[in-house]
């Protein structure tokens, strides 16, 4: 049967994309399968088992590290989001020049290589002798979470324009009521997307946490990195798989939020 004319059809493209998707997912799948290995050796399959997951969950150090990660990510997300909301509104209302200048400044944490952010923050904290334990890391994480929290909000503010806010003002809403009744509800999905993004990025961080943190502030990636350095064990696989699953849950949450937004 001859194909109907389709301007965008390219032979083999579908197969190529399938290969790329395999490239993206196969390593994650391999890790997941390995983590169900019941044996003591990574490379020798000894039947499927949840034994190493149990070991990870019972590991007090991992529990502490995970708790640290969540405290830091949670605090940094809340702070970054609270800072990003007014900043996104301000950037879109600013004159072109000011908007570009401030926009580039706020993008700095994205542009400067992570390792540089890590060591300069380390140098800065050491110089001013700031030793607040977890709070040091919360500050460092808040900084690089701000641009991520801000991105979706800015896009939404831009897409919204000023008309709806003008309509509310025209209907006798004073500035605070405009913000509370119109701006905030319309931004809410974007605020949530930004917050999830910030949370994921904070949990993801290794370099900054490793350099800026100290013995009492070990985060989950820093702890797991240490495990990997000591040796590849089934427990590392199980811990990694748990982190993988948690990331996927967050990704799903983010997607369902963005879908709800696009239905509006």
């Amino acid at each position: 049967m001859k194909r109907a004319y389709d301007p965008t059809h390219s032979p083999g493209l579908g197969a190529y994309v399938a290969l790329i998707i395999l490239f993206l997912y196969a390593p994650l799948a391999v890790l997941t399968v390995y983590s169900f290995n019941g044996g003591n050796l990574v490379t020798v399959w000894n039947g499927a088992s949840l034994r190493w997951f149990e070991a990870v969950i019972a590991n007090g150090d991992i529990q502490d590290a995970a708790l640290n990660s969540f405290i830091i990510a949670g605090s940094a997300t809340v702070l970054a989001t609270l800072i990003a909301i007014p900043a996104a509104l301000g950037l879109e209302r600013a004159s072109r020049r000011l908007g570009v200048a401030l926009g580039s400044l706020f993008a700095l944490p994205l542009l400067v290589p992570e390792i540089v952010t890590a060591v300069t923050t380390l140098v800065f904290f050491a110089s001013i002798k700031l030793r607040l334990g977890l709070a040091n890391l919360v500050i460092a994480h808040t900084v690089f979470c701000i641009p991520f929290a801000m991105m979706p909000i800015r896009a939404r503010v831009r897409g919204m324009g000023e008309t709806l806010e003008n309509a509310a003002r025209d209907l006798y809403a004073p500035p605070l009521a405009v913000f509370r009744r119109i701006t905030l509800p319309l931004l809410a999905p974007a605020i949530w997307s930004g917050a999830i993004l910030a949370f994921v990025v904070s949990l993801d961080d290794f370099v900054i946490s490793a350099l800026v943190g100290d013995a009492g502030t070990t985060t989950l990636p820093v702890y797991v990195y240490g495990m990997i350095r000591r040796g590849i064990t089934p427990e590392v696989n199980a811990a990694s798989t748990l982190m993988l699953v948690f990331s996927l849950i967050l990704a799903g949450l983010g997607r369902s939020l963005s879908r709800r937004r696009s239905r509006r």
Binding site: L164, N166, A167, A168, R169, L171, Y172, A173, R181, R264
Partner: peptide
């Protein structure tokens, strides 16, 4: 604008998407 007894019908209508028709009409 919120202190002027003047109301506008906007070109793109500017209806509040997160409110019902009645809530829109009653907003002012």
């Amino acid at each position: 604008p919120h202190l002027r007894p003047v109301n506008t019908v906007f070109q793109s209508y500017a209806l509040f998407p997160h409110m019902t028709v009645a809530e829109n009409a009653g907003f002012g």
